[in-house]
Design a protein around this nucleic acid. Structure first.
Lengths: 352, 352
DNA sequence: CAAAATAGCACAATCGATGGTGCAATAAAT
DNA sequence: ATTTATTGCACCATCGATTGTGCTATTTTG
């Protein structure tokens, strides 16, 4: 049954083999043959031949003709953390369930790289694109102006495409409140022992910080500018910030809001260089959920953003014909210490 | 300077605008113009026009003509764990540095899905493909027979394409030895307290188990079949296995070799349901490195596979004209407890 | 100054699939 | 037995870029 034609079969090959025209073959193989009134027997003949010769359509040719590709893209800042990798996992499941082909690319949080990458995706006629955590969503939007590409921003909002983001203000409040209350009624640490590390000047960080400050003032009666230490989204800069604080203060703040699991890795690096006692009285909140991060020696409260909810919403929006350009908020979830949640991996059946 | 032509400009548009032929425009814009003896001034004229009209080549058309796409693919089993996500991160950096476009796709450890996905990639004329941890590498190889696609297997070996994998036997030995020695000379746990959980019947697991058994016998003088509990690569099945063991034995084995970070998540789930004392005397080794996993309350020794080394080797092989079909071993690294390593993310410059 | 060489570019076929249009053969209607 | 409808399919332009070939000026050589 297996033919070993060296080259891939085309509709022209099959047209010769079947004694029909290429257009007939094409119609049969892409499912439009009823509309074209092709005889059932002809269709069968052709699709049998196709199977026998292991025909698969050249998707570049199809894409060129149709000026679409069947590809759905996800643009990530980075792969290597659980928030974004679970996003990729969830994204793929959604796209596959719609019978399309997912591709995931990252752009290193570099606005220039982001634009170039989207240009490339555009050049491949990617049909739909989810842009996650882009540094410059509107720059990307500009690149796509006038193209039929459907875009939705996720995680960080833009003004040129619909956006789906976490309610970072609420999340920031929830997490901060949980950290403070963890010390117990009457034992709340003073305002200047409650710090926020990490993040940069993006929408998400700003909102989280706003929530942090608001609830902090409500619960402790005061707030301070010095308690916010932006470090960017990088383990190494966060580590430096922790070291520097430790040198100055001789200890860590008792209540620590870490603005992302990436920054949390900076805390890990700090931990590697300091004895256990350093973390005795510490309560940490991390804005991002990582299952392993949830089980450290000190209590770690985490925020899990509703990745599935956001992706679902994003696809909903993309299926609209004229999506309105607005920002949708999705509620994140507070995760108590020592919690191992199920994730997108659990949807995958595994055989031993 | 910005023109807002609704549709994307093509070489034909530019050919009209410049008063030259499409082939000249094409040559200028893809860099072959010197070879074609195009006047410098003509080239400048055209590339200025191209810039002005924001021309970008239609890569599907180019791909169709050249029967290659400029895409380099990475096929993963799953996104959502640090081993594979760091692989994606490293992969992208490599591909970008070669001026190509990386795409990452996962196939859920499903042989059928793997084959379908590769077929799709093939249909898009992906130029090169790294297949990581495929359940059925040879099935994939079969799909690509007779195609010009260059494939290299990573993580799990196949017989139809060159493979680059970790030295899992050595890794298994190293990790097991480190676990046992962690208890201190003279305090080694008995053979039946040294267990291996996780993995399935794949090459990697087999080799690790072989290493585990060999060194166990060397150090403790004996070995046992019951001490190997395969669970597949899934958190939930691993959790069940731990629970079951715990019910039977009333405790966990003191020395625990966990065969992947995915299975380690099963241990986390177990931990969530059991008090701290349960893990008092425990030493865990995990075959995979996760920075957060390295800082749990009990000692966790990890193996970090040399992802960068493997990817580098893979690209080296792909650049050969006639790569020999053999398997290359890359040495993994033993990571002591409480270690926060730098990773691919550190290569990314970040601005606060 | 004629012949040969070179520069500079245009032409046209091609990659593989799609879809509008049109034409012949058969079936249905009158 | 015509006319009209319908079936079943072939033809051909098209998507946008690439590339082998060839033609005409211009320049160089003898």
């Amino acid at each position: 049954m297996e033919h070993h034609s060296k080259k891939k079969a085309t509709i022209y090959d099959l047209s010769v083999l079947s004694g029909t025209s290429p257009s007939t073959v094409s119609a049969v193989l892409n499912g439009t043959w009823r509309k074209r009134r092709i005889k059932e027997s002809t269709a069968k003949l052709i699709s049998d031949l196709a199977e026998e010769h292991q025909y698969t359509a050249n998707l570049q040719a199809r894409g060129l003709r149709r000026s679409r590709s069947g590809l759905v893209g996800l643009l990530l800042p980075v792969h290597d953390n659980r928030y974004f990798s679970s996003m990729a996992q969830t994204f793929e499941a959604h796209v596959r369930s719609r019978g399309q082909c997912p591709v995931v690319v990252s752009a290193c949080r570099d606005p220039e790289e982001e634009r170039k990458t989207v240009e490339a995706l555009l050049a491949y006629s990617v049909d739909e694109l989810i842009v996650a955590g882009a540094t410059d969503p509107d720059g990307i939007g500009a690149v796509c102006a006038g193209s039929p590409l459907k875009i939705v921003n996720i995680d960080l909002p833009g003004t040129r495409a619909p956006s789906v983001i976490s309610d970072n203000y609420q999340g920031g409040r929830m997490l901060t409140e949980a950290i403070i209350r963890y010390f117990g009624e009457g034992n709340y640490p003073p305002s200047d022992e409650i710090y926020l590390f990490g993040g940069r000047d993006d929408h998400a960080s700003r909102e989280r910080i706003r929530g942090f400050r608001a609830i902090k003032r409500e619960l402790t009666g005061s707030d301070c500018d010095e308690c916010i230490i932006r470090t960017g989204y990088s383990p190494s800069t966060a580590q430096v910030a922790f070291e520097r604080f430790y040198e100055r203060a001789g200890k860590l703040p008792r209540a620590l809001f870490v603005n992302s699991s990436i920054n949390f890795e900076g805390l890990l690096r700090f931990m590697a260089h300091h004895p256990n006692e350093t973390f005795q009285d510490l309560v940490v909140g991390c804005y991002d959920y990582d299952p392993f991060g949830s089980f450290l020696q000190f209590p770690v409260i985490m925020i899990r953003q509703d990745v599935d909810g956001m992706i679902t919403k994003a696809f909903e929006i993309m299926s609209e014909t004229h999506p309105s350009i607005r920002t949708y908020l999705v509620q994140p979830e507070l995760i108590p210490p020592r919690t191992a949640l199920t994730g997108p991996l659990d949807a995958i059946r595994d055989i031993a």
